[in-house]
Computed example of a mutant assay.
Amino acid sequence: MPTLDLTHPLATGMPVYPGTEPVRVEPAATLDADGYRTTRLDLDSHAGTHVDAPAHLTAGPALDEFPVERFRFDAAAADLRPLDAREQVDLDALQGALTADPAEVDVVAVVTGWDRHWGDERYFDHPYLSAETAGWLADRGCDLAVDTVNPDPTPTERASDDEPDGFPVHDRLFDADRLIVENLRGLDRVPDRFELHAYPLRFAGADASPVRALADTDGGDSGGDADGD
Rank of each mutant, 00 (worst) to 15 (best):
V25T: 00
T3Y: 14
R122G: 08
L41S: 06
T133Q: 03
D139C: 02
T30V: 01
T133F: 08
P210V: 05
T30A: 01
P15N: 05
L63E: 02
F174H: 14
G205F: 13
D207G: 13
A28P: 02
L187Y: 01
G186M: 13
G166H: 06
V169P: 00
L184M: 08
A215R: 01
L98D: 03
A75F: 06
R212A: 15
M14Q: 10
A53I: 10
T49H: 02
E21C: 10
H46G: 10
A138P: 07
D92K: 12
E26C: 07
T148N: 04
T39C: 00
T58C: 12
D101N: 09
V25G: 02
P127A: 10
L187T: 07
D52V: 01
S222T: 15
D90R: 11
L80P: 01
D79P: 01
L179E: 05
P82R: 02
V190H: 04
A75W: 07
M1E: 03
S160N: 01
D125N: 06
D79G: 07
T7N: 08
D139F: 06
E21M: 14
H117A: 10
H126I: 04
A145I: 00
F71A: 11
A55Q: 09
L214W: 11
D192T: 14
A33H: 03
S222N: 14
V108I: 14
L144D: 05
D115V: 05
D106C: 11
A131I: 07
A29R: 05
D162M: 03
H56S: 14
R72F: 13
P200S: 11
A134C: 07
E21L: 14
E26H: 02
F73C: 12
D207R: 15
Q88W: 02
T217P: 04
T12M: 07
W114P: 01
V211C: 11
P151T: 00
A78F: 03
T49G: 01
G223C: 07
L98A: 07
D207E: 09
G96M: 03
L41D: 03
V51L: 13
G186E: 08
D90F: 05
D216E: 15
G96D: 15
F66P: 14
A78R: 06
A204Y: 07
H117K: 04
